[in-house]
Amino acid sequence: MIPTPDLSHLSAQDYEHVYEPAEDTFLLLDALEADAEELRSLKAVVFLEVGSGSGCVSAFAGKILGPSALYLATDINHRACDCTRRTGSQNKVAVHTINTSLTTGLHQRLKNSVDVICFNPPYVPTMSTEASEAQDLRGIEGSWAGGSDGMQVTNTFLEVVHELMSPTGRFYLVAVKENNIPKIQSRMENLYQLRSKIILTRRAGREHLSIVRFEHTTAPTL
């Protein structure tokens, strides 16, 4: 078993501004752990977490993929970037943190290069304006307010993720039932030739959480 990253350096004050790891985070960790052997066999060179928040997922990925991979993490919230950096050093994983929206600024240079991408997006359905305002505020609200169907921010990333993935690259997405996962899956296959599978689901309170794993239809099945 891979231990959950040490987050003892983060305080209640940090969690006023940055999303505290919860059931959705832990489900993503469990999915990565279940795939650990396959991920190692892919010999990942570049790992990227979008919207890294506390940095818990990136630090955990570091324990799976080891020191020969590059860990990149982005967040629109500068306080989250700071937490991610600290969580990296606390867990001895060198996480390179960039304060940006999704992958803007990195996209041009990372085309077809990223072996593992993780995104735990703001998936909670809210008013559309609430989601836009939350992204503009660049604070903790942006970690959950997802607009119409909870897909407003996710949709923007789903349009570009296929360009970032390496030929054997994998993309792990956290989603809830309200996001209409079957619709996401068929759209990604039809528009971007990404096949997908729901690899883990769990009920946490009112949320029906799932982890969806995408890969190029041309990628070999492991």
């Binding site: 990149l72 950096r85 390179h96 240079r109």
Partner: peptide
Amino acid sequence: MVRLLTHNLLACHVKGCTSNNF
């Protein structure tokens, strides 16, 4: 941590700025 490794991956993404932006 802006190290030269990160820097080597960053390009300008201002609207319309698509060449000589790195």
